[in-house]
Computed example of a mutant assay.
Amino acid sequence: MSASGRVIALHLGLLVLLFALQFILPAYHHGNLARIMVLATYAVGYNILFGYTGLLSLGHALFFAAGMYGMGLTIQHMGFTPAPALIVGIVAGAIVSGALALLALRTVGVSFMIVTLMFAQAGYLTVLYFGEYTRGDEGFVIQQAQRILWGIDLSDATNRYFAAWVLFSVSFVISLWLVRSPFGRTLVAIRENEERVRMLGYDTFKHKLAAMVISGTISAAAGAFYGLLFGYAGASFASVQYSIFPLLWVLLGGAGTVLGPFVGTLFMFYLIDLSSGVTSAYLLIAGLALVLLTLFAPQGLTGELRRRIWKNLP
């Protein structure tokens, strides 16, 4: 089998495995994996901007929340059904990411981080300010009757798992295709040496703008589906910690690898889940694991696999 064939087989094999696990896993892990796949979709979106383009954003919670509230508020206050509500959420994320990109991409480095963080905080405060509609920190529940998509009850565990699997599969395949395309290779070149790419005649601003919109749209899709599948939208999803989470997941799994976001999300989710059952200081255990991984696997779990064993792993 060619190198390209092995790459495709590996990534599609993960999707087949996740599909098969639906029929094997006990209820607890079944529910966990559905949640992990949605959050991993969020990490996939973040990885396109950070891992492949080299832009460190601290404001991705703004896109996640735009998708969640775009979906949730239209269902709650405008009587939308799930299908158009999801579209509204995804479009909201695309618009917000495009608008922020036009402003933030005029800065570089630390300034870019600060601008994205500033706008994310503005989004969080906006959610709190309009608490009459968003219910602020308390949030609001999306009722079971409002979560029926094309006759499919998404509050059912099996249906929820398959919906999460479809969402993750689509974003995963898009990410794999994108990074192997000329556009994706240009993004990697921008990450490595933007000035040289500009000298070769590429419009780096347009490439970074497109990367940020794609990243924000995928993140918004994750937010919209998270709210719909798990029946809740709250201001905590717009807070700083939800901008830090995808960064940690991508760093742990391996920035600039297609598999990295899923591996990092899975690792961190179960690390916190298992350590919280042992001690109330579970964040200390999670922090220690992060330090050890940073020291001994600085490229992340999948990044180390690529460095040591499979050099051509995308």
Results as ranks from 00 to 15, higher is better:
residue 218 I to K: 00
residue 163 A to L: 06
residue 57 S to H: 02
residue 246 P to T: 01
residue 70 G to V: 05
residue 278 V to K: 12
residue 258 V to C: 09
residue 32 N to W: 06
residue 197 V to H: 07
residue 142 I to V: 14
residue 11 H to D: 01
residue 216 G to F: 06
residue 236 S to M: 13
residue 225 F to C: 01
residue 171 S to E: 00
residue 166 V to L: 15
residue 172 F to N: 04
residue 285 I to W: 03
residue 83 A to Q: 14
residue 191 R to I: 04
residue 252 L to I: 13
residue 70 G to L: 00
residue 16 V to Q: 02
residue 84 P to R: 06
residue 247 L to W: 11
residue 120 A to G: 12
residue 310 W to L: 11
residue 52 Y to V: 09
residue 276 S to R: 05
residue 237 F to Q: 07
residue 239 S to M: 11
residue 5 G to A: 14
residue 126 T to D: 05
residue 87 I to L: 15
residue 247 L to T: 11
residue 285 I to C: 00
residue 25 L to F: 10
residue 107 T to M: 15
residue 270 Y to M: 06
residue 259 L to D: 06
residue 61 A to V: 04
residue 193 N to W: 11
residue 100 L to V: 13
residue 166 V to P: 05
residue 171 S to F: 04
residue 188 V to Q: 14
residue 33 L to P: 02
residue 297 A to S: 07
residue 29 H to E: 10
residue 176 L to Q: 07
residue 144 Q to S: 14
residue 216 G to A: 11
residue 72 G to E: 01
residue 139 G to F: 09
residue 248 L to F: 06
residue 86 L to S: 06
residue 146 Q to L: 09
residue 290 L to M: 15
residue 68 M to T: 00
residue 137 D to T: 06
residue 303 G to I: 01
residue 149 L to W: 01
residue 23 F to S: 15
residue 261 P to C: 10
residue 229 L to C: 00
residue 305 L to W: 09
residue 1 M to G: 13
residue 154 L to A: 01
residue 236 S to P: 09
residue 175 S to V: 05
residue 161 Y to R: 03
residue 20 A to N: 06
residue 7 V to S: 12
residue 123 G to N: 04
residue 100 L to F: 08
residue 245 F to S: 04
residue 249 W to Y: 13
residue 92 A to C: 14
residue 217 T to Y: 08
residue 205 F to S: 04
residue 256 G to C: 14
residue 32 N to M: 13
residue 233 A to T: 08
residue 234 G to D: 12
residue 215 S to F: 04
residue 135 R to L: 10
residue 182 P to M: 12
residue 181 S to F: 13
residue 245 F to R: 03
residue 18 L to F: 14
residue 177 W to E: 10
residue 47 N to E: 12
residue 43 A to R: 03
residue 235 A to C: 13
residue 134 T to E: 08
residue 258 V to P: 04
residue 11 H to N: 06
residue 309 I to M: 13
residue 248 L to G: 04
residue 96 V to Y: 01
residue 274 L to F: 09
residue 181 S to E: 12
